[in-house]
């Protein structure tokens, strides 16, 4: 979770909105990638959950993008994807073959926590009041997202506590 080349002190509302859109976009793509990984490795339940998460991120992203368009139209953006790294996207390390839905949700929860931390840590550097307000809003939304995932988690029957590795085939030599 890090950024490159963003000057938070000088961040305008337009750029902040763009940044938020990019963060959602990164997360959406990562979840899609994870879903594809799960497909590749025959882990359909986790794949389904990651697709659901990708959809959620896409929706948030679209909402933010609409807001940006309403306020600033097609004014060029000063931030790019190259400036953000794993803000709300789950770490690559979080995926595992045969991961259970619970493990998948835990990974997603961790990335929502990560995003929350990002906004919390960025806030003190901000100067613009509107930007500050936006970041507070996004920060609070991350809490909502966490609650959403937690609610999904609660719906699941408890894990058996047995390790999948004790049941699945071993890796195949290539």
């Amino acid at each position: 979770m890090t950024t490159r080349g963003i000057d938070f002190k000088a961040l305008s509302l337009k750029d902040a909105l763009d940044l938020a859109v990019l963060i959602e976009q990164e997360a959406k793509e990562r979840y899609e990638e994870f879903a594809a990984q799960m497909d590749q490795h025959r882990t359909p339940d986790a794949a389904r959950f990651f697709r659901y998460m990708a959809l959620n991120e896409a929706k948030h992203g679209e909402a933010l993008a609409a807001r940006r368009a309403e306020l600033f139209g097609a004014a060029p953006s000063a931030v790019t994807r190259a400036m953000i790294f794993d803000i709300e996207a789950p770490d690559y390390d979080a995926a595992r073959a045969f991961m259970s839905p619970r493990q998948a949700m835990t990974a997603a929860l961790a990335s929502e926590v990560k995003a929350h931390t990002f906004f919390v840590e960025a806030l003190p550097a901000l100067k613009d009041a509107d930007v500050k307000a936006l970041f507070e809003e996004l920060r609070d939304e991350e809490v909502e997202h966490q609650d959403l995932v937690k609610a999904e988690l609660a719906k699941l029957p408890p894990d058996s506590g047995l390790s999948d590795e004790d049941f699945v085939d071993g890796p195949t030599a290539q």
Binding site: H41, Y92, R96, A97
Partner: peptide
């Protein structure tokens, strides 16, 4: 494998 460092 999911989780592999090479994805990063």
């Amino acid at each position: 494998c999911p989780g592999c460092g090479d994805y990063s």
